[in-house]
Design a protein around this nucleic acid. Structure first.
Lengths: 338, 338
DNA sequence: TAGTTTTTCCAAAACGTTTCGGATTTTGTG
DNA sequence: CACAAAATCCGAAACGTTTTGGAAAAACTA
């Protein structure tokens, strides 16, 4: 592998000059620059970024720390779409993305911030980690610039991008209320996600503003999992036959709920209306198509990357809140009179 | 950020000793090792992999070069599933994955092998690049160990993992033939994918063995795109009304084909049987559910990563061919008599 | 005790860059 | 032509590791 030294030797100049020539400094004559460039090309030179990073003290890499890169999570393109957004923005810069392995046992031995520090990433994007993850605080407290997705923590070195979860959930609930439903349940995620709290809040706000009493036992946690949600929904709907609608904090859980309803012989939307959250790909393909609150996952990743690069260039951390959109499909209908 | 030097100073030993203590060499007494370890922990030390990589001449990173990380490609989890497989294996090693940006304009200025060489990746996995990509040969001819996905090129430094495309396509065609179909069309991908050639071959073999003449004008290219396939299918089925079945080289194209058929008022499977390839997530959710040839994308990624790490540890490049499986759903039926 | 082996440590070079401070050469000015 | 200014170049240090080839100290051996 050819180095700057080889070029220097071939061109009969010092390594300093080669370096400065290649990097476009002005204190090298056009003649020698040309010569150096030619030799570099001829020798098929590519700079060793490791060496460069070492001396410049920046690696031009950002770390991407996602959960949800698991075999079971493919149904939920959430992670992938976010990654795509990140990649899309980063592709326009001179940064590269390094993917950190988080879903394995290695998580125990090496903390996130250790990973980041070892690889000397310039910044990091975190997605999908639980709020009680002991390493979350560690990263946030470290001085590594970082942007979080759907975790509202902010400092001068950490920003986040999220969506208007409260309002999104509120719209979903209001949609059901508008259809005449009063006995509305909610399938929430788990307590270790901020979005759960926020969506619950939005749900409650809508109910309260409509003067509809909230039944605590109608609000259950499905752990953001299709299977768990199915089981919980099965219990819920056998115990409380008067529920006519349910708002789910994720589409995946909505799918599970619909399975449970089918098993119970309840029709969607004739007997029970269900609305999801996320607008994953499947939402428009299942039957009946799922009414849901759409969030632009691609843009979330894109904005996160954009903010991070901004921060690396000296700007300060921000918070970006994207708008959600209620998309009404076939899984919701007016409540049956009677 | 604390370095080995800081530790050395604090412990009153040389950097050599610190290095060797931390790396578990035997020529340092347990007493000083303990002391060094303690100080390292106390100072919150993490090794600088950049420096390490530089001197050891290996970076413990592998490059992941995928196409299909685009906004439009989210329907097709193919890329994501492969990535997940790769990640899953790599997570068990001490390597990290660096994601290369390929889908952008940057592709023009920097070649893949340049990217790889600059970042000093130890090896690279390529997925989804076209066979006429000028940079493909460049990577293959470079001395960087690499494993290709679905591109049958082999040398001592490059291996590949693929599936039995010929046999898979053959099974699909035989399924249709077994249902009594004789007028079978094929929606292929494009000429710049090996899998297209192989699937075409499998299709033809099945037809020939069944003594069914192949109609050249019934074999069209859908460019692996839903939209293109839809347009081509529309033309095809308006022009040739006697076609009763079609084999598509990807599920996404099969979806496009089904859309076209719907537009034309043709029912699936009553009027036309459709079989796809890939078994993407949507295949089982669309209506009618798609009969298709399933390939284990996760495993493809997993095997690729496994092979690459093997190669980096001195073993030689291999070729791994995974089995496909015909999964019969609702989009195929016996041909109508008459 | 003297010699030998084993254990424990270290100085210095190397990896491939960038950059600081200054040196040398060329050009311009009167 | 002499001097100043500008243009062009370079040596050496630095980044944080690993490794080589010994050296010093400790532990045995006879």
């Amino acid at each position: 592998m050819t180095t700057i030294k080889d070029i220097a030797k071939a061109a009969g100049v010092s390594v300093t000059t080669v370096s400065r020539a290649l990097n476009g400094y002005s204190d090298v004559s056009e003649k020698t620059r040309k010569k150096i460039m030619d030799i570099a090309k001829q020798l098929n030179y590519s700079p060793n970024t490791l060496a460069r990073s070492l001396v410049m003290n920046k690696s031009k890499t950002i770390g991407l720390l996602v959960s949800g890169m698991t075999r079971s999570a493919v149904k939920d393109n959430f992670t992938f779409e976010v990654m795509t957004g990140v990649n899309d923005y980063i592709a326009k810069t001179d940064y590269d993305v390094i993917l950190f392995n988080t879903n394995s046992t290695k998580q125990r031995e090496k903390t996130y911030s250790q990973l980041c520090r070892e690889r000397r990433v310039d910044g990091v994007i975190l997605q999908g980690i639980k709020t009680d993850d002991p390493y979350l605080t560690e990263v946030v407290e470290s001085d590594i610039p970082c942007v979080l997705i759907d975790i509202p923590i902010q400092s001068d070195r950490v920003g986040y991008v999220t969506t208007d979860n409260v309002y999104g959930a509120k719209k979903a609930a209001q949609h059901l209320l508008g259809l005449g439903h009063r006995n509305i349940a909610m399938m929430n995620g788990h307590d270790y996600a901020f979005v759960s709290k926020q969506r619950l809040q939005g749900f409650c706000e809508a109910m309260e503003e409509a003067n509809v009493p909230i039944q605590k036992e109608w609000i259950v946690n499905g752990d953001f999992s299709e299977e768990v949600a199915e089981a919980r929904a099965y219990e819920l709907f056998t115990k409380h036959e008067n529920i006519t609608a349910i708002f789910c904090a994720s589409d995946l859980m909505a799918l599970g709920v619909m399975k449970a309803l089918k098993q119970l012989g309840l029709r969607v939307p004739e007997d029970v209306s269900v609305v999801g959250y996320d607008d994953i790909l499947l939402a428009s393909y299942v039957s009946p198509a799922l009414t849901t609150v759409a969030q632009n996952k691609f843009q979330m990743g894109y904005e996160a990357a954009s903010m991070l690069i901004d921060m690396l260039e000296g700007n300060e951390a921000k918070v970006v809140t994207l708008r959600t959109q209620l998309v009404v499909r076939e899984s919701t209908a007016e409540v049956k009179k009677g």
